[in-house]
Design a protein around this nucleic acid. Structure first.
Lengths: 203, 203
DNA sequence: CCACAAATTTGGAGTCACTGCAATTTGGGT
DNA sequence: ACCCAAATTGCAGTGACTCCAAATTTGTGG
């Protein structure tokens, strides 16, 4: 009863094994051309067990549990006193670049992940859904009164900028450029993007 | 051979009948609980014929042909000399409000459409896909050089703002408020949103 | 250690979107 | 009337996902 018995451990192991086996197959042959039945067979469980742990095939690739880190509401909420939301995100993105963090897709190998996603309509759809949820959550965190477009516009602007930056980084990584070349340019682009947000596009 | 024979006409009629019948069923019972087989039966064609005209079930609801009007690249491209892109969109949105245009979801009955879409995961996914394509197209239209995040950031900002405004309008329509009340508020929100884009969120 | 209850896993049958193909029907031109 | 090509159809899959009832496994109290 120390927090987990045999049962809990086995469940976690099974779940992990399924996810690992699935990722292996997806990496080798692409998401769409691997069937859930194949994953089940390779993980030595029944198809029903796969769906018991993962509500949909896409969750085998984009596990909902991995999406908890770096949530935008937290970035906004945990900003330093007196710091604007935009500044908080600028700092966060720059920090993510410096540490090659996963949360904005700056990590090594992000191009591979991205290529895999882009090759699959259903994975693309899932990514968009996640982005939408994040935008909604950020807008809600920024909301003070309620009936106003401002928080939603701000949320869309900030996350739009981060998406553009992720895309920029991934594109250059996919082109084979080394990180040492990409990093300074990416920093510059980040400053430029957030300057646009802070100072405006002009009339 | 005056541009169309019996054949062409029949094709158009069949396509239209399928689309109309489908919309009727969707409006009555929701998108997900109507099967393609039912649509086919009600339109008096085979299931294969439905898929012959519409590549996917979602296209019965969101016909790709209807999405040609009001494309953002055109708004950007057709702006007046010396006018900034943001100003062009501000004008376009304000014009859409004045005319209750369909292109930003300001038309009468947009709440119904919206509720139908929001109730269906697959329709939501399709809407997001369309939005993504539009953003991509706008960014491409703004692109001068190539390797720079600016056009993508700008595209994301502008379309983010229009999405927020559409949502605002639809929410108030769904709350049962008359257009005469919504319109002035919506105009004000539009000015506010575009002011944010032009002048920035501040540091 | 044993039985009993609860949680997991499984098999099987079914639904639904969508595909590919071969056969059939239909319209247009001669 | 006759032939070609396009449109329509039926049929037989495939693959994700659901529902349900029967096993199997695990934790617990006696």
């Amino acid at each position: 009863m120390a927090g987990m018995g045999l049962r809990e451990r086995k469940k976690r192991e099974t779940r992990q094994r399924i996810a690992d086996v699935a990722m292996g197959l997806f990496a080798a042959r692409g998401f769409d051309s691997v069937t859930v039945a194949e994953v089940a067979r390779a993980a030595d469980v029944s198809v029903n067990t796969v769906f018991n742990y993962f509500p949909a095939k896409e969750d085998l690739f984009l596990d909902r549990r991995d999406w908890t880190e770096g949530r935008p509401e937290e970035v906004a909420r945990r900003r330093e006193p007196g710091e604007s939301v935009v500044r908080a995100f600028r700092r966060d993105v720059l920090d993510a670049i410096a540490t090659r963090s996963w949360r904005y897709g700056f990590n090594e190998g992000a191009e591979v992940f991205d290529a895999l996603v882009r090759a699959s309509p259903s994975l693309l759809a899932r990514i968009r859904e996640i982005q939408d949820e994040r935008e909604e959550a950020l807008a809600a965190a920024l909301d003070r009164d309620g009936d106003d477009v401002t928080p939603r516009v701000v949320a869309a602007q900030i996350l739009g900028a981060t998406r553009a930056l992720s895309g920029y980084a991934v594109r250059r990584m996919a082109a084979g450029e080394p990180w040492s070349v990409i990093e300074p340019a990416l920093k510059e682009q980040t400053e430029r993007a957030f300057d646009l947000l802070e100072r405006g596009l002009g009339g």
